[in-house]
Structures are given as structure tokens and as C-alpha cells.
Design a binder for these strands. Structure first.
Lengths: 186, 186
DNA sequence: CTCCACATGTAACCGGTTACATGATTTT
DNA sequence: AAAATCATGTAACCGGTTACATGTGGAG
């Protein structure tokens, strides 16, 4: 539900669609993403449902900005959503696993190439996690102490990202080794 | 692409939509799922694209079965798909992380409840992985030795499932501990 | 001179979900 | 007597993607 992501960010402060896209791509992109066109259409729907209001701001030499603010109805809806625990198992889709599952006909060289490319992608993601992000929570709290409790939870989601990438890399290495061993005589 | 899942399974042997649903829910459900209605409509599309053909089989006391078979065009399309490595990063969506990210307003009791429910769900999934599945590959190979190479790859996807659930459980426990500690004075 | 950031939107399409409709046989 | 299994489909809906359309200002 992109709806709740938008309400969630707007609950901190008003923003334009463009700014919300930035917030998403720096804040939640690892577990929730959206492109601009979807953000704009969803904001419109939220406005006609009365969960946000907007006004246009004129700018010189730049396109006008349409700034959205959450309403008390919107805050209520958000509050209700966060207070309802998620009690299911996420149904994930994983193209890599699918390609591997049906991958025998691809031949082991194709599979190994694929796994090595994935390794480099996820190594890069892991590096980014380790560099930029781990002390973000701390920095945020020093700059804006009122966000202390948020920062703990944001850090938790980052920790999951870190752990996920580490596990995936281990699995990739293990799987490369297995394929090299078992398919060696091809 | 459900399309390729269906072609992938039909490449082993002909099957009905109903049977394909069983194959999916026992074989690929952890990384690709589908419900029956989507399977039936997708099979129709595949047939009009000439990638599968079907014929009806009459049964006594049971509804007729429509059995689908892959065509050589279908095999070719499947072959091409598995031979094209997946070289992107999967864009995942994770409701649990999202609820946590915006979860401050939920209060720590709600968050802890949610995490404990998730822990029990994923513990159950992990138990199932450890019981039923780990030697499936071996059993398959003993029963049908020609599936040896498939079994190695199927085992690899199972190993990922196992690793994923283990990591998630560790993260849940760590996160519960953090929240209990940091929000203790609420 | 080119690319990136800023900035907003519409239209067509598509993959997938939910609800509806039907109904016999077998197992608990 | 109820629930699960076998078995196939349609229609409405909806969340999300891709392509299209437009245009300025600033940095490299």
C-alpha cells in the first residue's frame, strides 16, 4: 500500500510528489518502492478521499510545486494502519530462485555467470549499507532528538537489510561452489 | 512471470491447471506463487500464443480435465528465458518492515506483539523446511535418477529458504530485544 | 553542449486478486 | 453431516508499470 507510505512521510511534514519520491528512494526503497507516476496518481486519490489536502506554490523559473499536507482524517487512517499488526507471511517473488529452479536447461556456465553477477550486485548493496547508513540513526538523533524513537525503528529496518544481503551473499557463494563441484564433468 | 513457471513445469510432463497449482504450491511457492484463476487465464493466453496445446479428457463422476502440453515453440521460449541471466536486483516489498518504519505511533506493545506473531509464523516455516524438505532432493534422485541435475538446483533454492528464515528469526529476536530495552520506560 | 535536478501530469496496458458460479466424490 | 479434494472457468477490480508529453535552470 503506497497510500500508507505517503501518509507516513506526510505525517512528518508537508511535501510535494517529487519530494516524496526522494524520501521513498532514500528511506524505504529496500522494502517499498514506487515511481513518480504512481505517486502522483495516488496523491490525487488520497486528496479526493480527504486524507490529504494540497495547494499550489508558484516558483520563478521552476515549475509550480503542489504541496500536500496530511489531514486529521489522514492521520487517523495512518494511526489505524500502523496499529494493526501484520500477521501474515509475505508472499515474495524471487526471479533469481525461479531461474535457478528451472535452470538445468540453461547449462552450468549460464547459471554461474548469473550467480556471479548477482554476487557483485549484492556486494555493492552491502557495501553501501555498511558505509553510508549504519550511523544514520545516530546522526538523525543528534540533529533532531525528537526523532529518537523513530531512529531506533529505522535502524532496525537497516539491520534487516544488512543481514539479508549478508545471508544472500553467503548463499550465492555456497551455490556457486556446489554448481562448480557437481557440474564439473559437463 | 507465471507464464514461465507454467512452461517450466509443463516441460517435464503434461498437466491440468489444477495439477499445476499443486506443483506450484509444493515446489515454487516460496519464491513464486499463483492462484487457480490466474493459472487458468494464463494457460488460455499461452494456448492462443501457440506455446501450449490442450485437449479435454472425459472422466466418470468427475469434471472433465483439460490437459495442457508444451509445444516446441513453448520449449523454445522457455529455453530462451532460462538462458537469459537475471542481472537486476529484485525490488522487494516487505509489509513488516514498512509497518516498523512508520511504527512509532503504534506504541511498543503493538510492535512487540507483531514481531512475536511473525516469529511464530517463521519458526513454523523453518520447522517445515527442516523436517519435510531437506532430503527431498535425495529422494527425488533415488526415484528418478534422470532428475539429478534438477535436484541440485532445487536443493539450492531450498537452502535459500532455510537461510532466509533463519536470518529473519535472528533479526526478529534482536529487534524484540532492542525494543524491549529502548522503550522500556514507556 | 550535455546531463542532471527540478517538477507535474495522463493514458494505455498488464499482472494479479477477489468474488462469483457449479458440482460430484471421498475422507474424516 | 461436514470438510476436503477434484475440476474449470468468468467478471470486476485494482495496484502498479511503461510510455508519452513538457519545460527551465544550473553544473560539469
Amino acid at each position: 500500500m503506497l497510500k500508507y507510505v505517503l501518509l507516513g512521510f506526510l505525517n512528518y511534514e508537508p511535501a510535494t510528489g517529487y519530494e516524496l519520491e526522494n524520501l521513498i528512494s532514500t528511506g524505504t526503497t529496500n522494502f517499498w518502492h514506487a515511481n513518480l507516476s504512481q505517486i502522483y496518481t495516488t496523491l490525487k486519490k488520497l486528496e479526493s478521499a480527504g486524507l490529504v489536502v494540497s495547494h499550489e506554490e508558484e516558483q520563478e523559473g521552476r515549475p509550480n510545486r503542489r504541496v500536500y499536507e496530511i489531514t486529521s482524517d489522514g492521520q487517523h487512517e495512518l494511526q489505524q494502519w500502523v496499529s494493526t499488526p501484520f500477521t501474515e507471511r509475505e508472499k515474495t517473488k524471487n526471479t533469481l530462485m525461479l531461474k535457478l529452479f528451472f535452470g538445468r536447461q540453461a547449462g552450468h556456465n549460464t547459471l554461474l555467470t548469473q550467480l556471479r553477477i548477482q554476487r557483485s550486485i549484492h556486494q555493492a548493496v552491502l557495501d553501501r549499507y555498511r558505509q553510508g547508513l549504519p550511523d544514520t540513526a545516530h546522526e538523525i538523533v543528534s540533529a533532531r532528538p525528537e526523532l529518537g524513537e523513530d531512529a531506533i525503528l529505522w535502524q532496525a529496518t537497516l539491520n534487516w537489510g544488512l543481514r539479508y544481503e549478508e545471508s544472500l551473499l553467503q548463499w550465492i557463494d555456497e551455490t556457486i561452489a556446489t554448481i562448480e563441484r557437481e557440474f564439473a564433468d559437463d
